[in-house]
Design a protein around this nucleic acid. Structure first.
Length: 606
RNA sequence: GUCCCCGUAGCUCAGUUGGAUAGAGCAACUGCCUUCUAAGCAGUAGGUCAGAGGUUCGAGUCCUCUCGGGGAUGCCA
C-alpha cells in the first residue's frame, strides 16, 4: 500500500457481502467471471484441494495484447505449484471447464500457464444492458449498502482566505466522498473550525489593529513596521494580509470611534472569524464543494467536551504526570515520544480539543472516520489514535490520509509564496483563472503521495490538448451525434443482444471491455482511498472514443450514422450512448461537468 | 538518530492485492479537415524503471542494503 495511512483494509468492506444486507445488485461481468473461475478451480479435476490457495490471487485481468484475448487468468500458475503439477496441464483442464460458461466464447492456454478467454456475445450484451438499465448509477453499489464514513477535510483555519493547497484538499475530499458513495458507503462531509485558542486571539489582535487603523484610532508609537513584521501596541500582527483591511473597512463603515474602541478582543476575533468563514464557504462553493456539517472548536469548548475528554483520558490510565505536566502515552501508537496534554502552566495543548472533537465524532456512531490532513501534519495520526483509544473508542476506525503539497506553475516557473508577507496563491484566483472543472481535474489527477505542480498555462488552455477539455469534448461529441441521429431517425438499439452481435470491430470490442471495467475502477478507488484513477480512466475512454470517431473520417464504414446498415447504425448509437454515460458517470465522480455542447471560442480558434 | 513518502521517457506523473512486448499528458518531428464538432486522430522519436543483492515459473511491483529528494519528530498550532 503506497499511501501514508493505516487501516485501509478496515474500510474495504464493499465487495464483501454483509449478512444483514441484501445483495446490492447483480454482480458485474468481472465478478461473475471471477466467480466462475473459482468454481472451476475448485473442481477436483482442476485443483481441488489447492483451490483455497487460489482464492485471493487467481483472477481474471485485462490483457494488454489483443492476441491474448479479452481477459486472461493466472489461476493455473497460482495453483500448480502447491499441487506439484505442470501449470500447462492445470491450465488445459481449467480452460476446458471455462469453455462451458455462457459468458465465455473461447478459452485457450498460453505459454507459462495463462488461460486467455474471449467473451461471448452474451457477455458483451450484458455490458450494454447493464449501462442502459443503471444509467447514471452504472458502476455504483446500492446506496448505504456499505459502512458509513465521516470524512473530514479542508478544515482551513478561519484566519484568512484559502490557498492553492486547500484547493487540492477540497477537490480530493469531495471526490473521495463521491467515490465512496458510489461504492455504497454513506458519507458525511465535515469541516472542523479551529476557532478557539491562541490562533483566534492572534486573529482578533490583527483585526483590531486594522479596525483601529480604518477608523483612525491609532495613537503615536502604537505601530512599528520594519517591512518584515508589523507590531501594534507591542504585539506582533500575525495576519497582516490585505483581506483583514478590507474586512475592517467594511466593518467600521457605519460605526464611530467610540464604538470600535469599546469592543472587546474576543468581539474582534469573532467578527473576523465569521467573515473569514464566510469567505471560505464562498471559495468552496466556487469549486462546487459543500460540506454537510461544520463543527466549531469554540462550541465544543463551551459544551464542556474538552474537560470531559481530559477526564476520560486520565480515568482510562492513558496519561501520567511528569515534570509538572500531564502526558499522553502516544508512544503506544507509534509516536517517537509521549506528548503533553496539560502544560506546566496549567494550559491545555491543542491536542486536547482535537481529541475532544474526535470523541464527538465517535459519539455520532459512524463505522469509519476518515481525515485528510496536509503532509506537514504527519505527526498527528499517532497522537490522535492515542487520544481516541484513551477516551475508550476504537482508534482502528480512524484513517488519516496525508496529502502532499501543490505548487503553482506559471510561465514555466514555480510561483513563490510566503505566508508571512500575506501573499499566497489564493484558491479563488486559481478557480477564477482555470475554472472549477479544470482546477478539479488537475488537483485529482495525481496520487496523493506525490507533490504536484499545477500548471496554470496548461489548465487554462482551451485550444490545445488539455485533458479536461478532451474528455468533455468527447462527451459533447456524443451528445451532438445523438442529436444528429435523432434527426436521421437513428435511435439507439433497444436490443443489446442484437447490438452486441454487430459490434465486432476490434475498437468496438475494446470500448465495450473498457466501459465494463468502470465498476471495478470505482471499487478499487474506494478500497485504496485514491482519486487519481478516475481521471486516468475517463481520459482513456475519451481516447478510445476519439480514435473511433476519427476512423470514420477516413473510412465511411465506421460512421455511426449512414453506415449503410440501419441495425449497425443503431447498435453503434447504443454503444455511443453507453460510452457517453460512462464518461458522464466518471466525470461526476470528480465533480466535473459533462457538457452537452462545447462551442469553440473565436479567440481560441485563432 | 528514528519513522513515513518519493526516485519510471526531455518535463509532470500513472502503472489494478507479482503477470505476457513498461504507459499517459505536455514538449519535439511527420502526416490527416468537401463528411456525425480537427478542443480531434495516426505515425516517429524518446527508458541501465536511482543502484546492488535476494525471493520464484515470472519483479517497476515483494524483502534486505546503499545512494539521492521531501516530510514528521515543541510543555507551538
Amino acid at each position: 500500500m503506497a499511501h501514508t495511512h493505516c487501516d485501509v483494509d478496515a474500510l474495504s468492506t464493499h465487495g464483501r457481502a454483509t449478512p444483514f444486507l441484501p445483495r446490492r445488485r447483480m454482480p458485474h461481468l468481472k465478478e461473475q467471471l471471477n466467480g466462475a473461475l473459482l468454481a472451476a478451480v475448485r473442481l477436483d479435476a482442476v485443483a481441488g484441494a489447492a483451490a483455497p490457495l487460489a482464492a485471493d490471487r487467481a483472477v481474471f485481468g485485462p490483457t494488454k495484447n489483443p492476441a491474448h484475448g479479452d481477459l486472461a487468468t493466472n489461476a493455473a500458475m497460482v495453483v500448480a505449484k502447491p499441487l506439484g503439477k505442470n501449470p500447462a496441464e492445470v491450465a488445459e483442464k481449467l480452460a476446458g471447464q471455462l469453455r462451458a460458461h455462457p459468458l465465455i466464447e473461447s478459452a485457450e492456454v498460453a505459454k507459462p500457464g495463462f488461460v486467455n478467454i474471449r467473451l461471448s456475445t452474451k457477455a458483451f450484451a450484458s455490458i450494454l444492458q447493464d449501462i442502459v438499465e443503471r444509467a447514471s448509477t452504472y458502476g455504483h453499489m446500492t446506496p448505504n449498502s456499505a459502512g458509513s464514513i465521516l470524512l473530514e477535510f479542508v478544515s482551513a483555519n478561519p484566519t484568512g482566505p484559502m490557498h492553492i493547497g486547500h484547493c487540492r484538499h477540497a477537490a480530493t475530499g469531495d471526490s473521495l466522498c463521491r467515490i465512496l458513495q458510489a461504492a455504497g458507503h454513506k458519507v458525511g462531509k465535515e469541516f472542523y473550525i479551529n476557532d478557539a485558542g491562541v490562533q483566534l486571539e492572534a486573529l482578533g489582535r490583527s483585526f483590531r489593529f486594522r479596525c483601529f487603523e480604518a477608523v483612525g484610532l491609532l495613537g503615536p508609537g502604537d505601530v512599528q513596521d520594519d517591512g518584515e513584521k508589523i507590531t501594534f501596541q507591542g504585539e506582533t500582527i500575525s495576519y497582516p494580509g490585505d483581506y483583514l483591511k478590507a474586512f475592517a473597512e467594511d466593518f467600521v463603515a457605519n460605526k464611530c470611534k467610540e464604538e470600535i474602541g469599546g469592543l472587546t478582543p474576543s468581539q474582534f476575533a469573532w467578527e473576523a472569524r465569521n467573515r473569514n468563514l464566510q469567505l471560505i464557504v464562498h471559495d468552496l462553493a466556487a469549486m462546487g464543494v459543500a460540506f454537510d456539517n461544520y463543527v466549531s472548536e469554540q462550541a465544543l469548548r463551551d459544551s464542556g467536551a474538552v474537560e470531559r475528554a481530559l477526564d476520560a483520558l486520565t480515568k482510562n490510565g492513558m496519561t501520567y504526570e511528569k515534570d509538572g505536566a500531564l502526558w499522553l502515552r502516544t508512544q503506544d501508537f507509534g509516536d517517537n515520544e509521549d506528548r503533553v496534554l496539560r502544560k506546566k502552566d496549567g494550559a491545555l495543548t491543542y491536542m486536547v480539543p482535537d481529541i475532544a472533537y474526535h470523541l464527538d465524532k465517535y459519539q455520532r456512531h459512524f463505522d469509519q472516520y476518515l481525515n485528510i490532513f496536509g503532509a506537514d501534519h504527519g505527526g498527528y495520526p499517532p497522537r490522535l489514535r492515542a487520544g481516541i483509544a484513551g477516551v475508550g473508542e476504537d482508534e482502528k476506525k480512524l484513517t488519516v490520509l496525508l496529502l502532499r503539497l501543490v505548487f503553482l506553475i506559471k510561465h514555466g516557473h514555480r510561483v513563490k509564496f510566503s505566508k508571512r508577507a500575506g501573499n499566497f496563491v489564493a484558491l479563488s484566483d486559481v478557480v477564477e483563472e482555470a475554472g472549477a472543472d479544470a482546477t478539479r481535474w488537475f488537483m485529482l489527477c495525481r496520487s496523493i503521495d506525490s507533490e504536484f505542480e499545477f500548471d496554470m498555462d496548461l489548465a487554462t488552455q482551451h485550444t490545445s490538448q488539455n485533458p479536461v477539455f478532451k474528455v468533455q469534448y468527447a462527451h459533447a461529441r456524443i451528445c451532438s451525434l445523438t442529436q444528429k441521429g435523432l434527426e436521421a431517425h437513428i435511435l439507439p438499439s433497444t436490443d443489446a443482444t442484437v447490438a452486441a452481435a454487430l459490434l465486432t470491430a476490434p475498437i468496438e470490442r475494446e470500448m465495450l471491455l473498457y466501459i465494463a471495467q468502470f465498476p471495478e475502477m470505482i471499487e478499487r478507488s474506494a478500497k485504496e482511498l485514491s482519486v487519481h484513477n478516475v481521471p486516468a480512466y475517463v481520459l482513456g475512454l475519451a481516447d478510445l472514443w476519439n480514435r473511433y470517431w476519427t476512423m470514420a473520417k477516413t473510412d465511411d464504414s465506421f460512421r455511426v450514422i449512414n453506415s449503410g446498415n440501419r441495425d449497425l447504425s443503431q447498435a453503434r448509437m447504443l454503444l455511443a450512448n453507453c460510452v457517453r454515460q460512462t464518461l458522464a458517470n466518471g466525470l461526476s465522480l470528480m465533480g466535473i461537468t459533462a457538457p452537452q455542447r462545447m462551442e469553440r471560442d473565436e479567440e481560441d480558434a485563432s
